[in-house]
Design a protein around this nucleic acid. Structure first.
Lengths: 222, 222
DNA sequence: ACAATTCAGTTGTATTTACAACAACAGGAG
DNA sequence: CTCCTGTTGTTGTAAATACAACTGAATTGT
């Protein structure tokens, strides 16, 4: 677990924690490390979770498959991000989504109770971590609202434009990479892949944008 | 503002705060009361917010209108609930939605900085409020994920079933009232009102459910 | 009580999207 | 190199949805 401390130091969760303190906190927060091969389920819908999880290596997708095999993708987790934070409240029920590793991944789990309850040890960083989590969850909240605003668009084209322009704004460049392939993007926006592919090509032919693989460029139509 | 203290006492935000303490906290948290007539905008998309808001009287809708007049509804705020919590982080930008009063309403705003920073006064309840907010935001997070799972359904019928069965589960009864009229429900699920109305009637004719106004009953098809 | 307004349901048509099946291409394994 | 697999784009058809226009019922205000 120690090898991932440099990663943890850079995460938003441990912002403001003195460099040497994280190692001692791991113990105090009952941290556990788990490894997952590509394609393996990290968490499954219906399970109960008492932990906050931090991805320290690899990549994850948060997704859900319904009875008929329709998949919907809630989002991607990259190294340094936390997940499972929506289930920390005592009354929160079972997980609503699966979490799947898209590459070989490493995850560190922290016991929630240990985070939000000040421990008996002399570790004075609890309140900092609570504050950090506070902001992280609030920010996740905003990201979900943004995703909802993409999905509430009525047409495939409007959904694509909403998502892509948001992504351009976020990455501060008209040219940017997205973390999805076409099928994943379609599942993310809840549209049919082939219809979406078709629409993307139409938009390209109209000069709205260009793309190659998952690299997109939005064009200025002024 | 004092007249709303009994309301505040019952909110999740002030759970665990001794009864007499709220009055003194109002000052400490720089609380401000605002009244809004039915139909008036409480907050507008694009504004910046430095406060947590608690609805103490009336009802609100969180919604967004696009350039062409398409409205999408993010959710409803009832008495005792908080809103604006997605914008507490210092880096969070402008509001992404409007907030509109659907009845004459009263809102109390609390300065976020005063909540998350321990004040110099002797008020010892800060950490309790922070913990409460923590759980509230986490729970909101889960609600957003649930809304996303309704909206990611591919057909109008599936969206309706997803929303209505969730509502039945939440209210622990197959018979329940929803907080929307038809147009609002359509805007909430991002579908056309008339198409939705049509689908609802088909579902009723097939015996899946029955309804009258905003009162719905799901039927057991075993 | 009456008029005005909002709300819910209905219908027909135009448009959009989903679905299915396939072709082209790229990258990796043997 | 060749085969296999996964990904993306293409096309035609079927199905679902949006849109517009209207009816009747319910609600509100005067």
């Amino acid at each position: 677990m120690e090898k991932y401390i440099p990663i943890l130091e850079k995460t938003q969760l441990f912002t403001g924690i003195a460099d040497g303190s994280i190692l001692s906190m791991l113990d105090c927060l009952n941290a556990r490390l788990s490894m997952y091969k590509k394609g393996v389920y990290v968490l499954r819908e219906g399970e109960h979770l008492c932990d906050i999880a931090v991805l320290v290596e690899g990549g994850l997708l948060i997704q859900k498959d319904d009875y008929w095999g329709n998949r919907s993708i809630l989002g991607r987790i990259s190294v340094g991000e936390i997940f499972g934070e929506a289930y920390v409240a005592p009354e929160s029920g079972a997980l609503l989504n699966d979490v799947v590793a898209t590459e070989d991944s490493a995850v560190i789990f922290f016991d929630v109770k240990h985070i939000i309850t000040t421990c008996s040890s002399a570790c004075s960083f609890h309140s900092t971590v609570v504050h950090n989590m506070f902001f992280i969850i609030s920010e996740k909240n905003r990201k979900l609202v943004q995703k909802l605003s993409h999905m509430s668009k009525r047409s495939t084209r409007a959904k694509l434009m909403s998502y892509l322009s948001e992504e351009a704004k976020h990455q501060r460049s008209a040219s940017f990479a997205i973390p999805f392939n076409r099928q994943q993007l379609a599942d993310f926006l809840s549209v049919d892949r082939s219809a979406m592919s078709n629409e993307l090509c139409k938009m390209r032919d109209e000069g709205l944008l260009s793309f190659k693989k998952n690299q997109f460029t939005l064009h200025d139509n002024s």
